[in-house]
């Protein structure tokens, strides 16, 4: 009788090219920057950040309005942001340029949440609230509840 032998060769998987986010190096960089932010925190400390109008306006409708709607900021190249936490602002910029967000503490999360909510950057807001839900325990439950209430997140507050 005839014996037929099958051999199956594993096909080489056509892998996707690895994409390195090219905007990493633009975060808070004066290169090509066309807008500066003088960020003043609640303790009146000032810090200067570099940014790019196109990128900001694309990711946040608030920035877009701020940069285009014909009020004072439209015509300036340095904008003052009051009551804004420096490190939270940097985190926000990082997310805007790289789509990555890295939260390390509840305190971070609260500050970042405030900014994300204010500038209408929804993914960051959601990520912060998720972080709260993960970190929830007996000690911080009331604090987190207050925050969730404040930023109108029923999912976290219940």
């Amino acid at each position: 009788s005839l014996l037929v032998k099958f051999e199956i060769h594993e096909s080489i998987i056509d892998a996707q090219p690895i994409i390195n986010n090219p905007f990493d190096k633009l975060v808070n960089s004066p290169r090509f920057s066309d807008i500066k932010f003088r960020v003043i925190d609640s303790k009146s400390r000032e810090k200067l950040f570099y940014a790019h109008k196109g990128i900001l306006a694309s990711s946040s409708s608030v920035f877009e309005a701020m940069l285009t709607n014909g009020m004072k900021e439209t015509f300036e190249d340095e904008i003052q942001l009051c009551q804004t936490n420096h490190s939270a602002f940097l985190s926000l910029l990082k997310f805007i340029y790289t789509f990555k967000v890295n939260i390390t503490s509840l305190c971070d999360a609260e500050n970042l949440l405030a900014l994300a909510d204010r500038f209408a950057i929804v993914p960051v807001r959601e990520e912060c609230l998720r972080y709260f839900r993960l970190e929830l325990n007996y000690d911080n439950v009331w604090g987190i509840w207050a925050i969730a209430e404040k930023y109108s997140c029923t999912k976290t507050s219940t």
Binding site: A65, M66, M71, K72, E73, T74, I79, C82, R118
Partner: peptide, 19 residues
């Protein structure tokens, strides 16, 4: 006279009121 107004300040004001 919009061009003399600070968007950032007004926005933050309204934001705080709603908050």
């Amino acid at each position: 006279n919009a061009s003399i107004l600070s968007f950032e300040e007004l926005y933050r004001n309204a934001y705080n009121m709603v908050l």
